[in-house]
Amino acid sequence: MTEKRLYGIDVLKAVCCFSVVLLHAVAYRVESFDGTASWMLANVISSATREAVPVFFMVSGALVLRRDIPSYAGYFLKIARNYTVPLLGGLAAYKLLAVSQGDPTPLLDGVVYNVRRSLAFHLWFMWTFLGLALVAPLLRPMVARPESRRLFLGLWLLFCIVQPWLGRIDVALPVDNMLFVLHTGYYVAGYALLAANRRVPAGWLLFLCGLAVGATAWLTWRAALETGLLSPLYYEGPSPFLVLYSACAFLLCRDLPAGPFPRLLAAVSGATFTVYIYHVLALSLAGRLFGPTTLAMRLLVHAPLAFLACLALDAVGRRIPGLRVFFR
């Protein structure tokens, strides 16, 4: 990969790190629909930060699938060391938070078993990521050729994006999906977009990103008006606007020329998993220490502090013997 692309990937990971913090910072507000300007602002911010998780999968796929995997044993040992151990550390931290809030369950509950019941609701991403890492050695030869990638992504779009919307109007495809799941498509899409030589003008990419965010926010608002409740239909899952937004954001950063602060960006990029694992804990602590929980406080105080706290935790944790194994 060229130096230019490495810089763009670092920018992308840094942006998505902060996006995911903002996403969860405004979640409490967007989930309580009342149609006010405050709710609409939270809705727009939520729509604008939904690219974070799909793009994380795309970046991972771009970096993993471009390389051959000569040794399965070495590859899976690396996965265990770099991802499973930090995940266990995160589960333990959230267990301590639960205990501080009066959780009566055994100490290992939510750490080594019943892990999906822990306060770390957002760590579903890590389990999905590990699942993708397990099948990466099989995906790599499957999508090595450009025509194979195009076929894979075409069928993924059909089964995982188009088919769910057809189902909403009682139309079913006559063939069964025997292979494709939502996040695997993003994983392969990242590799396909990184490997592609075609360049799209930045102006068009920005326009399409804005269009996708605007459509998501407007359609979510319309759906909430009809039911009085927030519907995540356009925020996640098979939303075509999320696919468009994620792909355009990836391409926009991929094509960035090398710019300033490469070492700082590399440090933020390297802290991706630490930020993702611990930002909900940091937001919770920020709310306790620097309340009240208003939208302005969440945006201007809690989210920046949580982001910086996670970066500091990563920088310090990597330097402490015995703890550094929990920081990738």
Rank of each mutant, 00 (worst) to 15 (best):
I45C: 00
A315N: 08
H183T: 11
H279L: 00
S47H: 11
F180V: 07
Q101I: 01
G61R: 13
G214Q: 09
A217T: 14
W39V: 08
L295T: 06
F273A: 08
F261I: 01
M142C: 11
L63P: 00
L219S: 09
A282W: 08
P86V: 13
L97Y: 14
T220F: 06
F261G: 00
R140H: 08
C160K: 15
R66C: 03
L193Y: 04
Y235F: 15
S246H: 05
S269K: 06
L132S: 06
A247D: 01
T294P: 06
A303S: 07
P321I: 12
F207L: 15
E226L: 05
A266H: 11
C310Y: 08
E51K: 10
A223D: 14
C17R: 06
T36L: 03
I69Q: 03
V64G: 03
Y245L: 03
L107A: 14
N43I: 09
G228S: 07
R140K: 11
G287E: 15
L230W: 02
L6R: 14
P238L: 09
P104E: 07
V111Q: 01
P304Y: 03
W156P: 01
A25I: 04
A93S: 12
R66W: 05
L206R: 15
T293G: 07
M297C: 15
D255Y: 07
R150I: 07
L242Q: 12
V243R: 10
G317D: 14
L158P: 03
L123I: 01
L285W: 15
A136R: 04
V200C: 12
V325E: 15
A37S: 13
P201C: 04
P201M: 13
M126F: 04
L251I: 05
